Amino acid sequence: MASRKRSSAPAAESEGINPKAPCPCGSGRRYKHCHGSGYAPPVIRSFEGLPGEADWVALRELVPAATATLRTKDGREVTLASVLPGGSPALVRANGEIMLGVQLQSSSDDVSRDLGTALAAALEAPAGAPVDPGPIGGAGSAGPRLQELLDTTAPFEVTVHDDFGFWLEGTEPNAAAKAGLEHANEAILPTVRLAGLEAAYWVRPGAERSHLRWVRPEPEEKLLDALARLRAAGEPMLLGEGTRYAGAFRAHGLVVPVWDLPADTPAEDWTEPATQWQARLEQALTVTDPLDADERRARAGLLSRQITIR
């Protein structure tokens, strides 16, 4: 495997990054002490250019059990899964079906290349044979990126599952496989993708509260400006009675606002309030004037409640 390491000074200069500035990865460390310390600059938006970028992020970071159908540039179908048994990056079933798992046990600074490396190996593997993509994660994978392998004109439609039963569909599982499935199912949190809203996921982690986690597709800086305008104008960040805006986290270059919701309200009941909130946001996104003093303060407040998870 070829190493991706290189000297930090050329990396910083070629990317126009001040070595003393905060690293773009969001770690909070200076660039020269993080990704400028000898590694190639990180890929901030791993799934940029793929259809459904926000849903890719959701399946990678938020959703326990879900699938989507992918199509390669040469027309082969691949089933993308949030996670595969044992955290495997890919497998090929006896019937030839290829499955790719987006939640990896380890990853590099370019998750798209990690997954592309696994997919390339699966495309070459015979039916029913183990997939060996070689080392994934750590210093980085040497294979192609997803954007090089997938047909980006194909639709990306997510199906959320109540359990991991799709792992064993069309197979004759042994006792160990059934036991593993049962164990995995015990850890699943009830999750619903709100209809008609891109990458908006309701989840109930316990009996007392539910949450809405919404991966927004807009560029981070533009979205934060719009949210600041709403807050400064007195527009409520709430979705209704009993709700609370909890803050946001940053994953793969996108912002994920999170709301606390009453646990006893069905997921489907939040579609309309969320749609109305999105309409207000879309209006704020059309404004291009510089932020005024109140809006800048509101933006700083939003940033203070935002964390980076990738």
Score class of each variant (00 low, 15 high):
C34I: 01
T69G: 09
E77R: 15
P10W: 01
A21S: 15
T72N: 09
P19N: 10
S27V: 02
P22S: 00
G16K: 09
G86D: 11
G26C: 10
G75R: 07
V83C: 10
A68V: 05
S27P: 09
A40R: 13
G28C: 05
I17S: 06
S8F: 11
S37L: 06
K20A: 14
K20E: 14
G38F: 03
V57N: 13
N18V: 00
E13F: 09
R6T: 13
F47P: 09
R60I: 01
G86V: 07
I17C: 07
P19I: 04
S82H: 01
P42Y: 04
V83K: 05
A54R: 05
I17V: 07
H35M: 03
S8I: 00
E48W: 07
T69Q: 07
G36N: 09
A54F: 06
H35N: 05
G38M: 02
A68R: 05
L84E: 02
V57A: 14
P10Y: 02
T72G: 11
S27M: 07
L70T: 04
A12S: 13
I17H: 08
L80E: 11
R76I: 00
I44N: 07
E53D: 09
P64M: 00
T72I: 06
A58V: 04
A58Y: 07
L59P: 12
E15I: 00
R29E: 13
E48H: 12
L84P: 01
I44E: 13
I44S: 05
F47H: 06
R29I: 00
A21D: 13
R45T: 12
T69M: 06
A81C: 15
Y31T: 01
A66Q: 05
P85K: 03
L59C: 10
P64E: 08
P19H: 08
T72E: 06
K20H: 14
H35F: 04
G16S: 08
P51L: 10
I44L: 15
P41L: 03
V57C: 13
G26Y: 08
V43I: 14
A65G: 09
P10T: 00
